[in-house]
Write a protein that binds this DNA or RNA. Sequence first.
DNA 1: GACGACTGTGTAACCGGTTTCGCGACGTTT
DNA 2: AAACGTCGCGAAACCGGTTACACAGTCGTC
Lengths: 327, 327
Amino acid sequence: MTIRDVAARAGVSPATVSRVFTQPDAVAPDTRRRVLDAAEELRYTPNPVARSLARRRTGNLGIVVPDIANSYSAMIIKAVQLEARHAGYALFVAASEELLDDEERVARALAPQVDGLLLASPLGTDAYLRELAELVPVVVTNRLVDGVSAVVAESAETTGHAVEHLHALGHRDIAYLAGPDGYSNTRRLAGLRDAGDRLGLRPVVLGPFPARFSSGVRAADLVLAAGVTAVVAFNDDIAAGLLNRFADRGVRVPDHVSVVGHDDTALAEMVTPRLTTVHIPAGAAGVTAAQMLITQLRGDNGAPRRSELSSELIVRGSTGPAPARPA
Amino acid sequence: MTIRDVAARAGVSPATVSRVFTQPDAVAPDTRRRVLDAAEELRYTPNPVARSLARRRTGNLGIVVPDIANSYSAMIIKAVQLEARHAGYALFVAASEELLDDEERVARALAPQVDGLLLASPLGTDAYLRELAELVPVVVTNRLVDGVSAVVAESAETTGHAVEHLHALGHRDIAYLAGPDGYSNTRRLAGLRDAGDRLGLRPVVLGPFPARFSSGVRAADLVLAAGVTAVVAFNDDIAAGLLNRFADRGVRVPDHVSVVGHDDTALAEMVTPRLTTVHIPAGAAGVTAAQMLITQLRGDNGAPRRSELSSELIVRGSTGPAPARPA
DNA sequence: GACGACTGTGTAACCGGTTTCGCGACGTTT
DNA sequence: AAACGTCGCGAAACCGGTTACACAGTCGTC
């Protein structure tokens, strides 16, 4: 069923049929009726591929995340997907699996078939990201690159608040479980160090660990061996792994050791005790990034924009007063 | 940069350039060299949209899941995405948000711009699914529809095993927390009833509940009020919610009450105690479904296929001997 | 040396839409 | 009644590739 079939059936030219579907009030009401009826009878629906070619825009957005199964990514994808659909875009999703090469390959493959690209916590170099941004409108999250629009929902300060919180509870020996090298980990580490310096603490840094539950399980024993009374983990998954292993070893949280996560994913509320964690507004970041991209696509000049969302320490049950002596 | 630019630069016709990129050994080695050099210098890369139009296939697959943030969906998406990429396809992801209308709308919107469509646990009617399958090759998971290829990883029997397990532990009063109406819930309920009849038990059915953590939290008190000693939940999220609320109320698992989940998502290992759960091989189902779809696209006649994966009861810490008297 | 098979390449139609441009009909203005 | 603006529509070019077909040149065969 092509536009020409419909045109023939309705006794008009293909151009008119096209208009009916793109600028309906550029065509006389009764002609429109005839065309719509013909389209209906033929069960015609415009071919989006042909339309993309002619219009030179696809109506698609793409997003590249480090790992789909990771709940932080999932929150962003979900937000972006909703926002995209709302604006009439479909969404391509691709995962880099935390591999630099894949990220680049995937992004380049996606670029020519989308109108805009979102990169969540990208690993690539600044130069590559800028180059990609030449090719297609790009918005990155959790990353700052000159000349590329960005949404960050990451503040070193808030990690600092976590340290202050622990310090106020009497903790003096704190460990940080590093995540994969990248913007987030660097910022979190910086916030930790700053606050540590201010308060006269020298946090022990362990890792880097993959940002997974199993890393936390493994790290738990290292933490105990390090003789600290509190741990700040790169993310909630790692923190949940800690809690799990601590429970198995009979180490009570927060009585023996306090645990702080990052991200405030759904998991934080699901574990026992609930996680004290640095809330990163992933959903809001996704929405903002998507909107930013879409406004850019609507012509709003090409100047890169930047948006900063505020994070916040959420105190729950996994932190408490430091024990008299380390676990 | 179009194919004609490259052709001009290399001193050949557009057809030859096209051949270089599609059937490289149909063109003489030195011509090929010249074309590739020209393409390189012009940083030319074939426009996938134009290519899709001409070839009448897009190189894209689509997947519609009930909820992206749901970890069961995430496991499937991840598996499918990997498999798709491996076969040279990009993946569209869309969520129905558990809304029937959205599912249909989204699927129809995706259909014309993909070569094949995967529907994970679809809600739509059989008729609609069959109709969709006329439009574009479709594979569904966790659902059986005549004439549509399917992968099921759901067996009523395994839910029955959970009941036997509980019965063997001395439980006589069991509750089932129903999930959203659909294939999975129906099967699970059937398995439960069958086993119940066989063993002389009459499970109390509560719900239906949305398949979320918060449902479990809410359901926990209903469960206690029902005076049962064991609960089988529709999925792990609900089960985790139960554990959470039980912990808050001081109800010990499995001493006071035993809990069984479904799906064996990552969460099952993350909670305390670890969840006894019916393992559904979501990843394998995703891989199988994707492969099935891809083989179908490769011409392998149009006959609908069907694949059944086996589920399995995984016993972990959340189930134990029935207490002398209900909690 | 003529014939046929095979290779490599170009011409042009095609995929299914969109959009520029121009034309005729009609209504308004003077 | 002539001049002008507006409206609705069609013809045709175009988006950027692919591919059927034709054709020229080369090689092997009898």
